[in-house]
Design a protein around this nucleic acid. Structure first.
Lengths: 140, 140
DNA sequence: CTGAATGCAAACGGTTTGCACGCCC
DNA sequence: GGGCGTGCAAACCGTTTGCATTCAG
């Protein structure tokens, strides 16, 4: 299923619907988890072996701008992307051993509304990530 | 005041007390706020114009390992450091316009203990940052 | 047909590494 | 004096940019 809605949204923003953009969108539809630019590049390459990193990054920028993808930064100098779709907003536990990621339910931002209002700070984005050792890696 | 305790801690871990390490420690004592490696490099250079980036980074690694400094990642590919000292653990609001940072009181981790225990996830570190527009920049 | 989007190669910025020299213990 | 720590230069890695070509509209 290729999201007609997403393509329409890009179109509405004045962006052309190219093979490459379809492809990147498809990768996000296929996997709602956090993915690095490299992950996305690799998956796209399996289908179209000529797609390039600049196109991946340019497309990701557009998708973030369009609000269809969320971008976060856990580890040193690497960005992670995930579909920002209708799913419930959530955060992650990240295992430092094996790199696997687990979803947390809910978001602690809800609990800070009062304090933020007092600071008169206009929130655009936030990130909340917990690093540690997952259950499986502890037992090794 | 140069923290005798911090130096002793480094010593106890088997690290030598060098001019450069004293200097970097001094910078953290002088400013408890978030600082980038570049900030620290510049401040050190004012005092010892021969100190190098590799030394800054190597020293920061040591201080993080020793638990004396905390490292976080807000923006694309840049790390931020702050003294992890006796001050209350806290997080930040980061203004996307002017880059200034404001402290939040408290930490939402406290509220997640139950869920983390259920996941049997051993927490090593976490980061929580809120990006937006500060009061002053909104009125411009 | 026109200009937005692409791929290539090369630059970028923050960080790390290899190596010979220097200095703490 | 032995070896950890340093500075230098150069590599590294993720990301971005300039430019000629291609293709969506």
């Amino acid at each position: 299923m290729e999201s007609k809605r997403d393509l329409a949204k890009l179109s509405a923003l004045g962006y052309r619907i190219t093979q490459q953009r379809r492809l990147v969108l498809g990768v996000f539809l296929a996997d709602p988890c956090l993915q690095s630019a490299e992950d996305i590049y690799d998956k796209c390459r399996e289908i179209d072996s000529s797609i390039s990193y600049p196109t991946i990054y340019r497309t990701l920028d557009i998708l973030v701008e369009a609000g269809m993808v969320r971008k976060t930064h856990f580890n040193q100098g690497k960005s992670w992307y995930e579909a920002a779709d209708n799913n419930l907003h959530h955060h992650h536990l990240v295992c430092r051993e094996c790199g696997s990621r687990f979803s947390l339910r809910g978001c602690p931002m809800d609990l800070l509304e009062e304090e933020l209002q007092r600071a008169q700070f206009k929130v655009l984005d936030h990130q909340f990530e917990i690093m540690g050792i997952c259950k499986d890696c502890q037992s090794v």
